[in-house]
Design a protein around this nucleic acid. Structure first.
Lengths: 228, 228
DNA sequence: TATTTTGCTTAACAATTTCGTAATGTTATT
DNA sequence: AATAACATTACGAAATTGTTAAGCAAAATA
């Protein structure tokens, strides 16, 4: 069943545990998939695209630590939450795991209420991150990477790709001056070569579309973003 | 025998399995019917009107995936729960199945206790679903993940599978921009390679069928779902 | 089984938007 | 005032998307 609670991938080599967890998650309304080893987990994660992965830390062949490293390499799983399942004994692994990018861990034996509580929290945070974490707010001005829009006093302003990227770069560090070279590198990349006036033209369009003065010229140096 | 436990249709091409499951279900107090292939399942489902269908994913001729699509189109089977029976090996089918609206799956070989436990959960959830309805609503627009249909102001609009999956993906996170690559990965999968115009054409059909502007193009980036 | 219908993809072309440049005007600094 | 750096404008090429029709495979129907 597709649900709006979220999608969870359960990974453990012990079938009983997987089924036990799976049962509880389903009942709680989550959409689930399962895997019984690291490789299977990696394959399924790509297709299933879970919001969260419950990953056993101790598995034969490829263990959880190795698995998580590979999972993290997949850009699509960037903001997938990974929670480790650990036996109480392996304390070292726990710490290792968190270092490697697990967001949390849950100790076995697993108590359903605790598990679900943790998941609810994690999911709530995920939603917040996805919707708000990708946006920068300066007073009435909002730059939303998630929606790829900019809005001023609630009005949506549509910027072209380059314009958006440029504004976004400047706004990422308000007050700081970006050299023209720097801007070229970060927005256009190292390979593309464009004339110097190109930047100006885009700056102009941004200023025009926004209607407010947030980009300041620093003559002979570059540009910076500044509110007021 | 009339029973208040619920009605279950068992579908598998292997007679032994059907009889084994059937025996266990009867014993547990369920009212059952059986079918040995997809077409028979579809016919019997219409007459028998089961609360739940146990459906083998691997069958000759019409397999479980095809069968489920047809079943879901039948309005009478709106909130019939479908549970897949899978051999542990067929992972792809499993995921496809979940995408297509199976509610759960049970791995063979089947253990009666596990089967019954799952059924109890599923039946309990049935009531919940009936109350909540399995759809996402945006104003006058309703996306029903069960029936694979969309309706606008009460009018039912039938989308093809790809169209539905595409709309559903975009609508799953309203406002958020999905990159073309992302769309390809999530709707078509990592293995399938299709031309770039393919997405556009599907987007076009969705826009055409819906008649309203809910999909916004973000040039050079992707598409997003937005009401108003 | 034969026939019709539907769904998916592609290719070709049209329409649109974006982007970069050149030409020219403006501003700040010396 | 002279000069260098930036602003503005308009235009055309390039990139991107929209649209249509057609071919093929799969599914539905008779």
């Amino acid at each position: 069943m597709e649900s709006n609670f979220g999608k969870i991938l359960v990974v453990d080599d012990e079938q009983d545990i997987v089924e036990f967890i799976n049962y509880n998650l389903k009942q709680a309304g989550y959409e689930t998939a399962t895997a019984y080893n690291g490789d299977e987990a990696i394959r399924k994660a790509e297709v299933f695209n879970p919001d969260l992965i419950l990953l056993d830390i101790m598995m034969p062949e490829k263990d959880g630590l190795q698995t998580i490293q590979q999972l993290r390499r997949n850009p699509n799983l960037d903001n997938t939450i990974i929670i480790f399942l650990t036996a109480l004994s392996d304390e070292k692994s726990e710490i290792e795991g968190l270092k490697l990018g697990a967001d949390d861990y849950i100790a076995k034996p697993i108590k359903p209420e605790l598990l679900l509580a943790r998941l609810r929290t994690a999911m709530r945070r995920l939603k917040k991150d996805e919707e708000q974490g990708n946006k920068i707010v300066f007073g009435d001005l909002e730059i939303n990477k998630y929606k790829f829009t900019v809005s001023y006093k609630g009005e949506e302003i549509i910027l072209a790709k380059k314009e958006f990227e440029l504004l976004n770069l400047l706004a990422s560090k308000p007050g700081r001056v970006f050299l023209r070279n720097e801007i070229l590198q970060k927005v256009w990349g190292t390979e593309v070569i464009v004339g110097d006036r190109t930047i100006d033209v885009h700056i102009r369009k941004i200023r025009q579309k926004l209607g407010i003065d947030v980009i300041t010229t620093v003559k002979g140096v570059g540009y910076k973003f500044e509110m007021e």
